[in-house]
């Protein structure tokens, strides 16, 4: 019986060491600056994708709703710009009488400054524009956007197409 006790003690000590080692490994891996940076990057990327989709989706029949969504997903420069000429923009959209829906096909973060809370992102977007009584047109465009972290998550602070010869 004594030999079993000794073996059991040895086994318990070994498994304690095993559990302690990987407990520490898990803790340090999930709390490393690298993994938190990776999480920030993924967060910014997701917010950027949603933001771009929001900005490139509009329906002339519910312009107020669309403009409000634009304001909600933007900050800084971009938000100020939209807010400033809200009325003329609204008229323009209503007159165009078209419905646009967009989908981000691929995107990637080009730069990320975790401390400053800024990021840049490029995205390939497929947009389908359907005029009031016309044929719908699908186009694929490329965009560059800048993101800024706010208390309410990452938001778009700049957005523009990357045209040829830029």
């Amino acid at each position: 019986m004594r030999i079993f006790t000794v073996l059991a003690v040895v086994l318990a000590v070994l498994t304690f060491g095993y559990a302690a080692y990987f407990g520490v490994a898990w803790y340090s891996a999930s709390h490393s600056s690298e993994s938190s940076f990776a999480a920030t990057r993924d967060d910014a990327l997701r917010s950027g994708q949603v933001g771009i989709t929001n900005f490139l989706t509009l329906d002339y029949k519910k312009v107020d709703e669309d403009l409000q969504r634009w304001l909600n997903s933007s900050t800084g420069e971009l938000r100020a710009e939209i807010d400033k000429d809200k009325d003329s923009r609204k008229k323009q959209l209503v007159d165009a009488k078209s419905v646009t829906s967009s989908k981000v096909l691929d995107s990637a973060i080009t730069e990320l400054d975790d401390r400053a809370g800024t990021a840049s992102m490029i995205a390939v977007v497929e947009s389908t524009v359907t005029p009031d009584n016309g044929q719908k047109v699908t186009k694929i465009n490329r965009y560059l956007t800048k993101l800024t972290r706010t208390d309410d998550g990452w938001k778009l602070s700049q957005l523009g197409p990357l045209r040829a010869g830029v």
Binding site: A12, T15, F16, Y18, A19, A20, Y21, F22, G23, A25, W26, A29, S30, E34, S35, F37, A38, A39, R41, D42, A108, I109, L112
Partner: peptide, 22 residues
């Protein structure tokens, strides 16, 4: 303890993040 250690092992392996920009 063995079960706990294995749980931690699996967890610490699954932490593996994508290294893009990191």
């Amino acid at each position: 303890l063995g079960g706990l250690g294995t749980f931690f092992l699996v967890k610490s392996r699954s932490v593996a993040y994508d290294a893009a920009l990191v």
